[in-house]
Amino acid sequence: MAQTPLGCRTPSLAWGHEVRKTLLSGQIWVEAWNPEYGSSYEVAAGTAPSEEEVAPFVEREREAWEPISPRAQAWPAVAFLDGVSRVDARAFLEGSTGTIPGICGSVGIGTVFCDGEAKFGPWQVHRAVVFGSGEAGELPPISESISYRSRSIPGTRPDELRLGLEALRAEQEAEMARVLARQGWIVLADGALGVLEPFDVVGLIKSHQKAYLEADLEPVVRALAPGQRTPIFSFGVIRPRYSWYLRLADATGHHPWAAIARCEVSAAVSLERAAELADLVTQHLPRFASKPFWDSRAPQNLVPIATLERRLWHLLGDRELVYRKIRSALMRGRAA
């Protein structure tokens, strides 16, 4: 091999390590999602299964644990639910123990009703100023339509502050889910939900960070055809849930977990109801799956959810404008 400018004899030495020749099958896949969104499948090989006491055989015994084609049902009145959150400004509070960092954040939650026609339903915007170290500070009213409620968290790190804002979003989403479920809607929420009551509230999880299934059951997920699901399994100690995997679209040519989504519903509902909901969702969600040209997280980012998310971002108001208003409100407060 020709001498390289670095004087190395082989390219592998130039990279500082030996190329492992022990690739499993040699097959390489490219994630269908836009790389900026991470990956739909982030379960590292060899990771131990989730420690949330997964019980895989609640619906089917081990020998019958195979892809299920749902019983056909009519599409009922379904409300898609989603929320977004945004940091509008970073703030500091002169507290008793020094300068406390905080964030001004906005949370938007809303719904799309799909019962033959897709229509935007109710929406809310909540704004909060979150300070760490258990301290709380009040912001003056920013404008006629913008004001920030005070919130406090024990931690001080930026990601903890962000989680404080996320907690607000989760609370409000759960509250809206309960209201809609009481009105008779089947609620399909984006992401895991904190609804523990026996409501028809199904959470849809787009990407996979944890392995819930034992290694010998995982091939069942890979074997799912579009519109099929796995049998229901349960997990969770604090929040017991029923869950299942389903395939939203044909993923020929993509990695084995492409187009796989996981759904969950509170284990407070009966197993029969959970199975009904699982069948319903598995049968009908492929209809709502997005196409790759349409969304960077296709197909898991469903059309109503993606559209709702864009609208919620919009309803939070122009970020630059909100930021400017916060600053001038504080300036005014100081001058007064």
């Binding site: 019962d115 229509k119 059309v303 109503p304 559209t307 609208r311």
Partner: peptide, 20 residues
């Protein structure tokens, strides 16, 4: 409003894409 692609008309008609 809310539609981005010409084919979105089909999504709106079948009731998956909310548009105004």
């Amino acid at each position: 409003e809310g539609a981005r692609f010409e084919s979105d008309m089909e999504l709106i008609k079948e009731g998956s894409l909310p548009a105004e």
